[in-house]
Amino acid sequence: MGRQINWRLLFKVIFLSLFLVFTVFPLYWIFITSLKPGKDMFTFPIHYWPETITFDNYINIFKISSFNIYIVNSLILSIVAGFFSLIIALLSGYVLARFEFKGKTQVIFAFFITQMIPIFIGLAPLYLLMSKLQLLNKLPSLMLMYTVMMIPFCTVIMKGFFERIPSSLEEAAMIDGCSRITALFKVIIPVMLPGIAATFIFAFVQCWNELFLAIMFIDKEEAKTIPVAMNSFITKFDIDWGAMSAATVLSVIPTLILFAFAQKYIVEGMTQGSVKG
């Protein structure tokens, strides 16, 4: 018995270690690249640790672009869009989980189909629409777009969470005199906090990384986001790998921190929604 467990442990250790290397190596490599001075970037043979460490690339991205503004924009944008999609999905997910009504299947189906739509098919009409509504070139309209983008997925995830929480919970509260909405916010939401956190993180990450809509709908410097800024390091005759790698490292930090704090909730949260999810 003991020996058998050791084999399994050995496999576990080896597999998880290899997987970790596989996963983390690209980040390591980008990190190393970001510390290399421009001239060492292409030198042969390759150095796995920079011969000279420099922070020039980091300083440079703040010089050539208003990267500090972009970070703030991306943060606000992702948090607000994540929050609103969460609230809206909370309501729709709740109703879809708790009530039977005519057209429910169609509603779910409509949300499901959105996942299949290639973003480019509607991009031109969407641009015209946003232009007519005077919604171009504003951070809030990007928030709106991202919120819309995340609603279907969040709704279905939320629906899964609600289905796993016995309805007796809010019914008890309602008997105590709470309205349904109060019961929802006071009794149910605290129970599903991990799930909500997980959904929020998913939404946050998607918004944090979104590129095409951000390029299309934002013109002015003060409203640009990190992915747009990074894309502009690719110029006609040069890819600025130094700036690109430094920006990558900076852009990954917030999400990494978020993951580090919330990884427990992500898994726990998804656990709540898993079967129905």
Partner: peptide, 23 residues
Amino acid sequence: VELISPPLKSADEKISQMLMAKE
């Protein structure tokens, strides 16, 4: 003057889009 500088790869596409919307 307000300068709009989209990333190179999508710039012409964006300019066309803006003009299509009669901006």
